[in-house]
């Protein structure tokens, strides 16, 4: 076992989650795989969404996985960076919009 919280080799072992609670793990992976199949959205669009979300949840495994998936789908690096900015804007905006709550609460509390 490595002496750090994240170990790159764990990504390849993700499937071993089913070793314990096989039924739940299998249901998850079946669902996961179904989500990424082409549907109303193309697999390419889904890869890009996943890349943005990966940055939002700051998951290094997901970032590696969906950078690779994006590259496989021919998504260019500037496109990928634009998606990361979308994630950043939403994430930053989510903090900032709470400023309205702060302003209103402060106004209420202050004389």
């Amino acid at each position: 076992m490595s002496n750090s919280y994240y170990d790159k080799s764990h990504l390849a072992k993700f499937g071993s989650i089913t070793d314990l609670q096989e039924k739940l793990g299998t249901k998850f992976f079946d669902y996961y795989n179904a989500v990424f199949e082409g549907g109303e959205l193309s697999a390419r669009e889904k890869a890009l969404i996943a890349l943005a979300v990966a940055h939002t949840v700051q998951c290094p495994y997901c970032i590696d996985a969906y950078t690779e998936s994006s590259v496989k789908h021919g998504i260019s690096e500037p496109e990928m960076m634009e998606a990361v900015h979308v994630a950043c804007a939403i994430r930053g905006g989510a903090s900032l919009v709470h400023g309205v709550q702060m302003m209103e609460q402060a106004k209420k509390l202050n004389m």
């Binding site: 082409g38 697999a43 390419r44 690779e68 590259v71 496989k72 789908h73 021919g74």
Partner: peptide, 17 residues
């Protein structure tokens, strides 16, 4: 063939693209 260090997407999906 992949232009980098990764495996190809499924052939059927890529052919359609």
């Amino acid at each position: 063939n992949p232009a980098g260090a990764f495996l190809p997407l499924p052939q059927q999906e890529l052919e359609a693209d």
